[in-house]
Design a protein around this nucleic acid. Structure first.
Length: 388
RNA sequence: GGCGAGGUAGCGAAGCGGUCAAACGCAGCAGACUGUAAAUCUGUCGCCCUAGCGGCUUCGAAGGUUCGAGUCCUUCCCUCGCCA
């Protein structure tokens, strides 16, 4: 099994271009990971994702653990085999569900007690359990269980949460290393991917001091990569950019940095400028299903009456299947008519926009033109707003 | 022709004397969505405006009763069902 390797090939200002090598193949970075929470990206097939050039998917430990269950997936040879996707997969730990399902859980030192959103049953997700489930899934990158805190939070609360996430990270790393040990691995049913990497997660809210402390401590534990979590949860974007910019210098230059849950197209460019290598976000897929299309000139809402007889493609400068083939008028009709194709075509376009943006970013960095790309990108996004 | 049921905002449908410009659903219009409980949710939805427990015109049509009528009475028009 190929070891997990990350290599930075180019830098341009704060931006880095590189390759993340996993047991299931290479991922050129900076990269965007489409979100396939339950083992599928909503609205499109795996074949569509291959056509779009998606190099890595994100999936979710909590959701797959509840349904269909980690044992069932392990018996089918792991997540890659079960869902029929042979490229890299990163699994989130369930830490985000600590935030999004806050009303259904309690936290203590041991872990997170959830009442299942599916059937109400109780489950205890510990840092160790999250490692074990992800071992059974056999993802290429496993995330540690963290606590994703809601945005306005008192500093004392943020510190307490950040420190608990650190303690959990140590336990998760410990369990991960022991599972990597051969004897332990064979005694545990279903370590599906010996080449699996594990990423730690930096927390600390919007406090630069806590973020730096979290970054240093997490780095000290030693992971294959590092994520910045707990952002894009309602804080102003300039605050988010500031925190990202102050955190990446505290992370090892030779390892991948993953900004969890981000973001808008602007967020991606601004975060790459601050040294981020990996992203995931539901915006392109969820908003596609809700009628919002990201374009090179800013987002449009295809539901709007103004597009009823608009024969132009969603984004005139886009080369995706949807834009090559269909008009805004038709896409609007499909959406209003409730046709499944509306979700699919919109998702294809939005994912193309995101993946293509990252491809352009990588190219710009390789040619050391990232700063001019960045300026032009922002200008283009605001063009339509200036026109109207 | 006889008997019965019914005509309410774009559609469907509540309403049974006052707080009804009129519940609710759909359609329409607009907005939100950042490690997905989301093909979801929110607002708006007669007309006018200085946007307010504001003004105006409404509940098939016309008259009437009443302090007050979408709600009661009369006549007319129109739908649907059953019988001839």
């Amino acid at each position: 099994m190929a070891p997990f390797v990350f290599r930075v090939s180019h830098t341009d200002g704060g931006a880095r271009r590189g390759v993340m090598t996993t047991a299931h193949g290479d991922v050129p970075t900076p990269a965007f990971m489409p979100v396939g929470t339950q083992g599928a990206v909503k609205g499109v097939t795996h074949r569509d994702l291959l056509d779009l050039g998606a190099d890595i998917l994100l999936s979710n430990t909590y959701h797959l653990y509840l349904r269909p269950g980690a044992d069932l997936i392990a018996r089918r040879g792991g997540l890659h085999a079960f869902i029929g996707w042979s490229r890299p997969i990163l699994t989130d730990s369930g830490g985000y569900q600590v935030f999004s399902l806050a009303a259904r859980r309690t936290i203590d030192e041991e872990g997170v007690r959830f009442r299942s959103h599916l059937d109400g049953s109780s489950h205890l997700l510990t840092p160790e359990k999250a490692v074990e489930v992800q071992a059974q899934l056999g993802s290429d990158v496993a995330m540690v269980l963290d606590e994703c805190l809601a945005h306005p939070a008192e500093t004392a609360v943020v510190r307490e949460s950040m420190e608990r996430t650190l303690r959990w990270a140590r336990r998760a790393r410990d369990r991960f290393l022991r599972l990597s040990d051969e004897g332990e691995a064979t005694s545990f049913p279903g370590v599906m991917n010996p080449g699996q990497a594990q990423f730690g997660i930096v927390q600390g809210g919007v406090s630069p001091e806590l973020r730096e402390e979290s970054a240093c401590e997490t780095t000290q534990i030693g992971f294959e990569g590092y994520a910045i979590g707990g952002l894009s949860v309602g804080e102003p974007t300039d605050v988010m950019y500031d925190i990202v910019g102050r955190t990446t210098p505290s992370l090892p230059a030779g390892q991948p940095r993953y900004l969890m849950g981000a973001g808008t197209p602007q967020d991606l460019v601004e975060s790459v400028a601050r040294g981020i290598d990996l992203f995931d976000c539901v915006l392109p897929t969820r908003n596609a299903r809700n009628g919002q299309l990201f374009t090179s000139e800013g987002p449009i809402n295809i539901k709007n009456a103004r597009y009823a007889e608009d024969d132009r493609p969603a984004d005139p400068s886009c080369t995706c299947y949807t834009c090559r083939t269909f008009s805004r008028a038709y896409l609007r009709h499909l959406f209003l008519a409730g046709e499944i194709n509306a979700s699919t075509l919109n998702t294809l376009h939005n994912l193309h926009f995101y993946l293509d943006t990252l491809a352009r970013i990588r190219e710009a960095i390789a040619f050391r033109r990232f700063e001019s790309f960045r300026v032009a990108f922002h200008q283009s996004l605001s063009r339509r707003l200036l026109d109207s």
